[in-house]
């Protein structure tokens, strides 16, 4: 990494760390317990959002099953801390190891698939993991779950802790994204021939990215277990996997910041709508559709979208003709 790009990477990473520090301190001094709780949830979910962004950006693969890795992290932390009396950090590390190993084993057969076929395969994987957790009763407590997981402390402590953890991970991700490896991965995406011509084995790269995304998601799962102090298999369902992808899409897949912005928006919508109680779920659905319609490339894609719109407008003004029809707009991807 050298020159302007390197300086930009350092600047962005530092900006993130600074922002994280400000948010952590600001939250610590000014936020109510409720908003601190919402903040912890957003920060926690921003990790799977990042994991999916890297998976899509670097390996060209979507996943509809990352709730499984989230569950693995949560259960590893819960089981090791409540049954074996481990330290929470050791528990989270156990989660990382297990999630990484599982991802490595299933990565090889699954990542050969693509598109909708991979979507259903990852979804199926998450369902299998959930059923196993439901039935491994001696270890996981089965459907009754595990109670009495050590707490992260008051919402204030939890907020500062989780925000700092997430900030450091994001700063590292920004740094890697701007590095030579990150740029090569992004440029190649899942173009197998391009990779092969650079002497890279696409299959092993994909598996490595998959493992990394599983590890990131597992960390969030560990946070979840200590944050709620109770876990059961029920919440690790399709809705959770879908939520992770929604966050990534709403933010935009072009840069690491998209995952963070998406998590903030999608996480904050229910909090803002909570006063509408019974209508909050309906309004949430409307909000998701509206955001994706107004910004189909995510919030980060808005500038590009504006550029296209402006160009189109200029063309209309110049020619005095009707607006361009669907399909005439150049593909922005």
């Amino acid at each position: 990494m050298s020159g302007a790009r390197g300086r930009r990477a350092v600047a962005e990473a530092l900006a993130l760390l600074g922002l994280g520090l400000v948010v952590a301190l600001g939250g610590h001094f000014f936020l109510s317990n409720y908003w601190l709780t919402v903040g912890v949830v957003i920060a926690m979910y921003s990790l799977p959002s990042l994991a999916l962004l890297l998976l899509l950006g670097y390996a060209g693969r979507p996943s509809f099953g990352h709730a499984a890795f989230f569950a693995v992290g949560a259960y590893a932390s819960a089981v090791t801390t409540t049954r074996l009396g481990w330290d929470p950090v050791a528990g989270a590390l156990a989660g990382i190891v297990v999630a990484g190993a599982v991802a490595y084993v299933i990565g090889f057969p699954l990542l050969r698939l693509s598109g909708h076929y991979l979507a259903i395969a990852t979804l199926a994987f998450a369902i299998i993991v959930r059923v196993v957790l439901e039935n491994a009763t001696p270890l996981t407590g089965g459907l009754n779950g595990i109670v009495g997981i050590p707490s992260l402390g008051t919402p204030r402590t939890a907020f500062v802790l989780v925000v700092m953890l997430v900030t450091i991970i994001y700063a590292a991700a920004v740094f890697i994204d701007h590095s030579r490896i990150g740029r090569i991965l992004r440029a190649l995406g899942d173009d197998e021939r391009a990779m092969a011509s650079c002497g890279i084995n696409p299959q092993s790269i994909r598996t490595a990215v998959f493992v990394a995304s599983a590890v990131l998601t597992s960390i969030a799962g560990s946070v979840y277990a200590h944050f709620l102090t109770y876990i059961s298999p029920e919440p690790f369902n399709v809705d959770m996997s879908v939520l992770f992808v929604t966050m990534m899409l709403v933010g935009g897949t072009g840069s690491v910041w998209g995952a963070l912005i998406g998590a903030c928006i999608v996480g904050a919508i229910p909090a803002v709508l909570s006063t509408y109680a019974a209508y909050s779920a309906l309004l949430y659905g409307i909000a998701i559709v509206a955001v994706l319609l107004l910004a189909p490339y995510g919030v980060l894609g808005l500038p590009t979208q504006l550029r296209i719109a402006r160009a189109r407008l200029r063309r209309i003004v110049a020619s005095g003709s009707k607006p361009a029809q669907a399909g005439e707009v150049a593909n922005v991807d």
Binding site: L249, Y279, L282, I286, L292, P296, Y297, A326, G327, V329
Partner: peptide, 30 residues
């Protein structure tokens, strides 16, 4: 209302899945 509006910007197919997922939340709650 939804698919044709989204189509103007030709988003990736993944976006349509989540658009229709949002639609399913709306329909089920209505």
């Amino acid at each position: 209302l939804v698919i044709n509006t989204a189509r103007r910007f030709r988003p990736p197919l993944l976006t349509y899945i989540f658009l229709t997922f949002g639609v399913s939340i709306i329909l089920s709650n209505l």
